[in-house]
Design a binder for these strands. Sequence first.
RNA 1: GCUCCGUUGGUGUAGUCCGGCCAAUCAUUUUGGCCUUUCGAGCCGAAGACCUGGGUUCAAAUCCCAGACGGAGCACCA
Length: 468
Amino acid sequence: MAEVRLRCAPNPNGPWHIGHARMGAVIGKYADRYDGWMLCRFDDTDPATKRPSLQAYDQILDDLAYLGFKPDEVLRASDRLELYYEHARDVIELGGAYTCSCPAGEFSERKSAGEACPHRDRPIDESLAAFDRMVAGEFSAGDRVLRIRTDLEAPNPAERDWVAFRMVDEPHPREDAAADRCWPLLDFQSAIDDHHTQITHIIRGKDLQDSVARQGYLYEYLGWEYPTVLHWGRISVDEYEFPLSTSTMGERIEAGDLTGWDDPAAPTLQSLKRRGIRGAAVTDALAELGVSESDVELSMSSIYARNRERIDPIADRYFLVRDGTRLPLVGDVPATAEPPKHPTDEERGNRTIPVGDAVRIEPGDLPAHGERVWLKGLGCVRAMREALELTGDSIEVVRDGDVPVIHWVPAGGAIPVTIRMPTGDSTGLAEPSFAEVDVDDVVQFERVGFARVDSHARDESIVYFAHN
RNA sequence: GCUCCGUUGGUGUAGUCCGGCCAAUCAUUUUGGCCUUUCGAGCCGAAGACCUGGGUUCAAAUCCCAGACGGAGCACCA
């Protein structure tokens, strides 16, 4: 069987959000499954309206690596203009393209009416000469384009004499391409590249579904065979207030609504990574959406469930109390509590919590007067007036079912923690030994949720909340 | 307006091409129980779907027609 060759063709205008990740995840998975070949091709042919960002090339490769994939080859369209020009000349010579100076609006009206413009039947030599002047940068934006001659009576207006090259005044941000002014549009560039890189299967969004018909004319002129193509529908994600849009997020960062691409509220891969979510969990959840053409809504819980499987076995447990209420302890108070770091992995050993003379517990856990709760790792206490009294009850009272087990921190020595969540920041106090957890480790705050340790400072630690 | 496409539980998905074994798969979600010094972990159980209306057929999620709803394209964006 012939090799499966796939490509992932992002526009490098920003780091990836979850929608882009679907492209990486599905294409990467397919490449792996069929032991195929994968190209990452940066379609950076619009220096003006979809202006590439210089950092994005590497960011996207990082995003791809986060998802678990390394492309076999990386190309930038902006390096390949000569190739596109060559083929453009070929197509002109075959009578399949002509240069046109109609204003866009005017052409559009003609197109809707199915009428040819005056340039359509100009001599080939004339188009060839004009195209060379385009390549030489002798025109300005809007003055001249190269159109592919298709069928003006094609039922779908999207197919009719589409633009293959146009002039762009703005220099490309990449230095190597900054002098070029004549740029191909996606349908042309992508068609040429897909053929040259021998792509066997194109997988892309249905926003490009009409490209098959458009590019079909080009492939016909050149005598090439079109790859197999699959389209998927729109993806949306629950739990996020921000749309899956690079430009919108860029604006919100600019406006200060987001602290950056890795803000927990941003639906980006950088954000998920910072929250301690494993790329493989994202990939699996996204790949499971498949390639159906219907629109899909991804539940973040699907990513969380897959991440939980991965991090639950490795996350050490700690106590963290939010909005803690301070309560003195009375009775026979032990010096330390020593709950295990992990409920099933005993080899990790125990934490040591100096108890002191008071604890903090969450308001929702506060027992009514006279009721008992079990402070995990410490023992059973009964709520007195303004204090908790150690009762000395054995664990049997928990097994009997009347005494809930709750988490707590000592009132002295607890570590202030800022918890950064998609819904905003929150604060809490963690048990003292949390200070020793390495940055970048993922922990489970018992009964609160999983979080990645982002930084430790003298006065506070910062964690990014993953999910519960 | 023109042209494409889609519609299976809350979410996603299998099944649709080649009608029957589909009183519809799996995951997530919600939920009951057990276990457990947390649990969102583990084990056992439960809930919840074929867009609507016609037609063809012994038999339709699957084929045909119509409609509804949803989406995409008709850019000198990708």
